[in-house]
Amino acid sequence: MEHYFSENPNTKSERKKIKYTIENKTFEFITDNGVFSKGKVDSGTDLMLKTFIKDKKFKKKEKMNVLDIGCGYGTVSVILKSFYPFLHMTLSDVNERALKLSEENLKNHNIKGYEIIKSSVFDNISGNFDIILSNPPIRAGKEIIFSIYEGAYEHLNLNGEFYCVIRTKHGAKSTQKKMEQIFGNCETEKIDGGYRVYKSIKKIK
Rank of each mutant, 00 (worst) to 15 (best):
E2P: 15
E2Y: 15
E2N: 13
H3G: 03
H3T: 14
E7M: 04
E7K: 13
P9C: 10
K17A: 08
K17I: 12
K19C: 10
T21N: 05
T21C: 11
K25F: 11
K25I: 14
F27N: 01
E28C: 10
F29K: 09
F29C: 01
I30E: 14
T31F: 13
N33P: 11
F36M: 03
F36Q: 03
G39Q: 07
V41Y: 05
S43N: 04
L49F: 05
K50I: 00
T51Q: 09
T51I: 09
K54W: 06
D55N: 14
D55Y: 06
F58M: 09
F58D: 06
K59V: 06
K61R: 14
L67V: 04
I69N: 06
G72V: 08
G72D: 09
G72F: 06
G74D: 10
V76R: 01
S77W: 11
V78W: 09
L80E: 13
K81T: 01
S82I: 05
P85E: 02
P85S: 08
F86K: 03
L87R: 01
T90Q: 00
S92M: 03
R97K: 13
L99K: 07
K100H: 12
L101E: 09
E103C: 10
E103M: 14
E104P: 02
L106N: 10
L106V: 08
N108T: 07
H109V: 04
G113E: 12
I117T: 11
S126R: 09
S126F: 11
F129I: 04
I131E: 05
I132T: 05
S134R: 00
N135K: 10
P137D: 06
A140Q: 01
G141C: 08
K142I: 02
S147C: 10
I148N: 01
G151I: 09
Y153S: 03
Y153V: 10
L158K: 08
N159R: 11
G160Y: 04
Y163G: 09
Y163E: 07
C164D: 02
V165K: 09
V165I: 08
R167F: 05
T168W: 00
K169T: 14
H170G: 00
G171C: 11
A172N: 13
A172H: 12
K173F: 15
Q176R: 12
K177M: 13
M179I: 07
E180G: 10
Q181Y: 10
I182K: 03
I182T: 05
F183W: 06
F183H: 07
C186I: 01
E189T: 00
I191K: 15
D192T: 00
D192Q: 11
Y195P: 01
R196E: 08
R196Y: 06
K199M: 14
K199S: 08
K199I: 03
I201C: 11
K202C: 02
K203V: 07
